[in-house]
Amino acid sequence: MRSFFSTFILCAIVGLLAFGGVYFWKKSQIDHHHEHLSAFEWFCEEFDVGPEERQKIEALHLAYFPECEDHCIHYADTKKTLAEIIEDPGLDQHPEHAKAAEQLAQLKKEADKEFIDFIYSVAGEMDPKSSERYLQRMKGWLEKTTEIVVE
């Protein structure tokens, strides 16, 4: 026989120990798994990319990266220029302001187009079920990039 109070305390301690043990064990497994996982390896794992598909898709990624980098640097420079113009009160109504803003919007459109073309080319190498899931997930990021630009 045990009192209700001591039973309650015992259950709480045992329950917390079980929770902590299981949670930290699983967490360490997850952390260990993701520790040395690159973004591309995550993509292959998440969308069940097989070894053959992987080679083709990796080649697509490697071919796309230089173009992506150039665009990225161009976009970052234009964004910096626009930020400098915005900070300068003397350039408030200046034509340079509108020009830089237009250029940034144009680069965003081009970046989105490049991104869409790329994800469709990648999806073309995947099996239908995975490609549909991949496209759906990636398209969700287009809205997020727009939010980032607005911010």
Partner: peptide
């Protein structure tokens, strides 16, 4: 992964 393939996120 997305920031590695989208120029805006990369920037």
């Amino acid at each position: 992964y997305v920031s590695s393939i989208h120029p805006v996120l990369r920037s």
